[in-house]
């Protein structure tokens, strides 16, 4: 299944092809996403946050310090790393509020005021939240495939909750898509 994403297109349409891009992908590496960025001089970081290693331990109660430590281990990039593009897909929905805060607190260290940050949320509990893998096919098109692994517990966050919980970034623009997903671009908050 393919999903048209106009916000994503607006984030990616003026990428500088001459400059080396640094891209963060919260998911696992997919053939389509690698192929898409093979047209650019770039460094892609795949963190595979949808793995059991990353999400499995969040099912227990962790302190704030433990959560920070967990995400620091998962997002251990060189300190000089600064992402131009940040593809979060639907990972925010797999993090409860404390985990969401810790994750974005660590991630925001690698963001700058020009980082293009993209993700999805689901607002209505009635909207089924599919267990799927996102791949970037074209600048405005994602490919959705059913994830083979079992789905982790997920959480529905309103835009208000996201803005109150995220650390170092906030919702910029949001568009409700036909399948019920809310497509969101985020902005880095200065001085974070």
């Amino acid at each position: 299944m393919e999903l048209r994403c106009n916000l994503l297109a607006s984030l990616l349409d003026d990428l500088d092809e001459e400059r080396k891009l640094t891209v963060f992908d919260a998911g696992s590496a997919t053939p389509e996403t690698v192929e898409f960025f093979s047209n650019y001089k770039c460094r892609l970081h795949f963190s595979d946050l949808f793995s059991r290693e990353a999400l499995g331990c969040l099912e227990g109660e962790l302190t704030e310090a433990e959560l920070l430590n967990h995400f620091q281990e998962l997002l251990s990039f060189p300190t000089s790393t600064s992402f131009d593009v940040c593809l979060l897909w639907d990972v925010l929905n797999y993090l409860n509020e404390p985990a969401l805060n810790a994750f974005t607190k660590v991630l925001s260290r690698y963001l700058n005021s020009d980082t293009r940050i993209h993700g999805f949320a689901t607002l209505k509990p009635s909207t089924p939240f599919p267990n799927q893998v996102f791949s970037l096919v074209k600048i405005n098109t994602l490919k959705l495939k059913t994830r083979s692994a079992a789905q982790f517990p997920y959480y529905l966050h309103s835009q208000l909750t996201l803005n109150n919980t995220l650390s170092g970034m906030k919702v910029g623009k949001a568009t409700l898509l036909a399948n019920g997903l809310l497509e969101i671009s985020f902005n880095k908050i200065p001085d974070h």
Binding site: Y40, R43, H45, F46, S47, D48
Partner: peptide, 9 residues
């Protein structure tokens, strides 16, 4: 795959 990919076509 887990890690980084550095490409320069």
């Amino acid at each position: 795959f887990k890690g980084s990919i550095d490409m320069d076509p």
